[in-house]
Amino acid sequence: MLVIVTYDVSTVDPKPGARRLRRVAKICESYGIRVQKSVFECQVGNKELAEMKIKLADVIDKNKDSLRFYLIDQAMKARIEHIGTNLPIDVSEDTLMI
């Protein structure tokens, strides 16, 4: 499945905030591709999605940061509109990870 992961990590406290921000980005990079500064497209199965959520939840400060996961199925994939570079990743049935 295609999962869009977005995050907002507070950097009001520069050192710990920047550290959390780097960790969140690194975890997301291990599951997908960055399409904008705080947005990743991840093609994952249910197991990988669960793992990613646990890892990210362990890194963020739940009182200051925010994570969002948008699960996109094949029908919704056809409705994605894009302008510019970094085309959305292919989520055809033969490329799904299980």
Rank of each mutant, 00 (worst) to 15 (best):
N46Y: 07
N46Q: 13
N46I: 08
K47V: 13
K47F: 12
K47L: 11
E48W: 02
E48V: 02
E48R: 12
L49R: 06
L49Y: 09
L49G: 05
L49D: 03
A50T: 10
A50N: 12
A50V: 09
A50R: 10
A50P: 01
A50L: 09
E51C: 08
E51D: 13
M52T: 02
M52W: 01
M52N: 04
M52S: 01
M52F: 03
M52R: 03
K53R: 14
K53I: 06
K53N: 07
K53V: 07
K53D: 05
K53P: 01
K53Q: 14
K53L: 04
I54G: 05
I54L: 14
I54P: 01
I54S: 12
K55R: 15
K55I: 07
K55C: 06
K55V: 07
K55E: 15
L56G: 02
L56C: 04
L56T: 06
L56K: 07
L56H: 02
A57F: 05
A57Q: 12
A57Y: 06
A57E: 14
D58Y: 01
D58E: 13
V59R: 00
V59L: 03
V59G: 00
I60K: 08
I60N: 08
I60E: 08
I60W: 04
I60A: 06
I60R: 06
D61V: 01
D61L: 01
D61I: 01
D61N: 14
K62R: 10
K62Y: 00
K62I: 07
K62N: 08
K62C: 00
K62S: 12
K62T: 08
N63P: 00
N63Q: 12
N63T: 11
N63F: 00
N63A: 13
N63E: 15
K64M: 07
K64G: 00
K64H: 06
K64C: 05
K64L: 10
K64V: 02
D65F: 03
D65I: 01
D65S: 06
D65W: 01
S66W: 00
S66P: 00
S66T: 13
S66V: 10
S66H: 11
L67Y: 02
L67R: 03
L67S: 05
L67D: 03
L67I: 03
R68E: 04
R68M: 10
R68F: 12
R68H: 11
F69K: 04
F69Q: 03
F69D: 05
F69R: 06
Y70H: 10
Y70G: 03
Y70S: 05
Y70Q: 05
L71W: 01
L71D: 07
L71R: 15
L71T: 15
L71H: 11
I72E: 09
I72P: 06
I72D: 08
I72L: 12
I72C: 11
D73I: 08
D73Y: 09
D73C: 15
D73E: 09
D73P: 04
Q74C: 13
Q74Y: 11
A75W: 03
A75R: 12
A75S: 13
A75E: 14
A75K: 13
A75V: 13
M76K: 09
M76F: 10
M76Y: 05
M76G: 10
M76A: 15
M76T: 13
K77N: 11
K77S: 14
